[in-house]
Amino acid sequence: MIEAQSVSLTIGTANLVDRVDVTIAPGRVTAILGPNGAGKSSLLSLLAGERKPSGGQVSLSSKPLSQWRANDLARRRAVVPQSAQLAFPFTVEQVVRLGFALTPPPPKQRADIVAQAMAEADITHLRDRPLPTLSGGERQRTHFARALAQLAANDDGQPAYLLLDEPTASLDPAHQHGLLASLRSWVRRTNGGAAVVLHDLTLAARYAQDVLLLSHGKVAAQGAMADLEGAVLERVYGIGFDRLTDSAGQALYVARGL
């Protein structure tokens, strides 16, 4: 598992992440929630090993991330960025293949891995299109497929981890659910763990077993979405939420308006 122990990130005088404890466990989806500037992306970058914490530490399989080689780490965790600017006109399929460019699986498996990852992200029909010509949502799905391909290529039996930074931000409703459903099925299938930054509480309630609610870099609440109190949500987000139940009996969170 990925374990953050009292991890902090300070840049200048700003405490972006302030003594956060969180565990990304195999077989579970953890949603990271919080208003803009709460430190969600900063926490994710610490979990990814991309930045060094100013305090505390993050470890994967009980070994601090700072002691992992970038290449070994890439076999065990993948990251779906909020938005990645691609400098050159690589095609969708080329980008998905980049997922395992530095950690290549046996040549025979490559085409299957790419095909399956593209199918999961529903981008198979875009495979030959240059990435810069696609819409924001299509690009996001491509990066999701790239991350799936990266981890599928390194299936050595050890649980792998997917970290996603607002992967649903530019997706239409069908693809929001599609992406999170395929994330959950990836978690079940591979016994991997996932941490996903979300703004939509309804999606968090439906697809994440655990939530971590951040406010000003600190943990405001932690646990199952259903146990999150309305008063805490209102205090953190500065707006109240109504918790409704849809026709299928699933929770819906609707902001009340100011």
Binding site: A74, P81, Q85, A101, L102
Partner: peptide
């Protein structure tokens, strides 16, 4: 060449994919 391909995604993304 392959590393330059990966680098085209961005410095952070290149690190995520296993590049220093």
């Amino acid at each position: 060449a392959t590393r330059l391909d990966v680098f085209a995604l961005g410095e952070r993304e290149a690190f995520h994919l296993g590049l220093d």
